[in-house]
Amino acid sequence: MKSNMRQFLLAGACLAGISVALPAQAASPAPAAPSAPAAAPAYSTATTPIGDLLDNPATKAVLVKDVPALVSNPQIDMARGMTLKQVQAYAADTLTDDVLAKIDADLARVPAAK
């Protein structure tokens, strides 16, 4: 009886070892390393001063296309140090969230000045 009990325990231990080993062997492959986060756009309505946007021909073209009345406004020079997002508080009818999103999408296509 001792022999049968010993074989039973030995068999149980072996099976326990196999059942523990199987999940580790069948584990899913390690996840791929996360890719580098996308680079932030060089220009944005929230971070780039209007003066910088006006001084760069490529970004000024975006403003002329998307908000021509703002670019031609004689008071625009007073806002050169502000961002379009900051000016939105004073020109909410012109610089709506949708307009700023469109400008940001267009600015994202403009490479950073060297």
Rank of each mutant, 00 (worst) to 15 (best):
P49S: 10
P23D: 07
D55H: 06
A39F: 04
A24F: 11
T83K: 10
Y43Q: 13
A26F: 13
L70F: 05
D77W: 04
A101D: 05
A101K: 02
P37Q: 00
V71G: 07
A40M: 13
A30I: 14
A30F: 04
R80I: 09
D98P: 12
P31M: 11
A39P: 00
P29L: 04
L100M: 12
T48N: 07
V67M: 05
A38I: 12
V64T: 15
S35P: 03
D93S: 05
A27P: 00
P31V: 08
A58H: 07
G81E: 12
A91C: 09
P34R: 03
A89C: 03
Y90M: 12
A32P: 00
A26M: 14
L63W: 14
V99R: 00
T48P: 00
A36W: 06
A89S: 15
N73V: 08
A33K: 05
A89M: 09
A89F: 12
Y43K: 07
A89L: 14
K60N: 03
D97V: 07
A79P: 00
A26I: 13
D98Q: 15
P41L: 15
D93M: 05
A89G: 11
S28L: 11
R80L: 05
Q86V: 06
T96H: 01
Q88D: 11
L53V: 10
K60M: 02
Q86G: 02
A26T: 05
A89R: 12
S35R: 14
P68T: 01
D97K: 03
A58Y: 00
P49V: 11
A69E: 13
A91Q: 15
A30W: 03
L84Y: 06
D55Q: 13
T47K: 12
A92V: 10
P57T: 03
T47A: 11
T59D: 01
V87N: 00
A39G: 01
D55S: 15
A58I: 10
L70V: 14
A27F: 06
D97H: 04
A40K: 08
S44I: 03
D77R: 09
P57D: 03
T48L: 10
A33W: 07
D66Q: 14
T96M: 03
T59M: 00
Q25W: 12
A101E: 11
A38Y: 08
D52T: 14
P49Q: 14
Y90W: 02
D97R: 00
L70Y: 01
S72Q: 01
T48S: 03
V64A: 00
A40V: 10
S44D: 00
D52N: 06
V71Q: 01
I76P: 01
Q25C: 07
A79V: 09
T83A: 02
N56E: 14
P41D: 06
P68I: 02
Y90I: 08
T47L: 11
P23V: 02
A38F: 06
A33V: 14
S35T: 14
A36Q: 06
T47F: 11
Q88K: 10
A79H: 12
A26E: 12
D66Y: 02
A58T: 12
K85C: 04
A101P: 07
L53R: 11
L95K: 02
M82R: 11
A33S: 13
P74F: 08
D97P: 15
D55F: 03
L95Q: 14
A32D: 02
V62N: 10
G81A: 14
K85R: 14
A32E: 08
A30P: 01
